[in-house]
């Protein structure tokens, strides 16, 4: 518990840097993120990417877990509608996330903290712009308190 306490104190003293988890599908958005990298288009370092085969692999439980563990924002990126490598995966993702995000909003996690974006493998610039914009939005919203594992908080 000692460690946790010092951590909390430290983060509150520093300027708020949001923690953002980005789920990216392997075929489009993860490749788009790679292209942003090879084009040297920067976005905040607090965006951390998790690779999934398809946006439809993202279980709502992963997103809940991220918020519970202290994420301030979660973004899901997939192929553009009609371009899914698995034909229809992104349509499932879209429907599931619409439901999940409205439920999260109801629980007090603002709509701005969750987002679905379609980024193709050729859209490095869009990936970087999206992440910059999302990070700015989360920064404005401030730290997320809802859904956090209260046992870790002081």
């Amino acid at each position: 518990m000692q460690v946790n306490e010092t951590n909390t104190v430290n983060t509150e003293e520093k300027e708020f840097t949001p923690l953002i988890v980005a789920f990216c599908c392997n075929w489009c958005s993860y490749a788009g993120a790679d292209l942003a990298g090879s084009s040297r288009l920067s976005y905040p370092a607090n965006v951390k990417i998790i690779r999934v085969p398809c946006s439809c692999r993202v279980n709502p439980l992963f997103i809940l877990r991220a918020f519970q563990r202290g994420a301030d924002g979660v973004i899901l990126c997939g192929c553009h509608p009609g371009d899914c490598h698995y034909s229809t995966g992104n349509y499932y993702a879209r429907r599931r996330m619409t439901l999940l995000f409205s439920m999260l909003d109801y629980l007090g996690i603002e709509k701005g903290r969750t987002r679905v974006e379609w980024v193709s493998a050729a859209e490095g610039a869009k990936f970087s712009a999206t992440m910059n914009d999302f990070a700015a939005t989360i920064h404005k919203l401030g730290p997320n308190r809802k859904l956090r594992d209260l046992r870790c908080e002081k």
């Binding site: 923690l19 998790i50 999934v52 085969p53 992963f62 877990r65 991220a66 563990r69 202290g70 994420a71």
Partner: peptide
């Protein structure tokens, strides 16, 4: 890409 594997990644990132 099992549930527990992705959960473990989430946990590691959100530490």
């Amino acid at each position: 890409f099992a549930n527990r594997q992705i959960m473990a990644e989430v946990d590691a990132i959100c530490k």
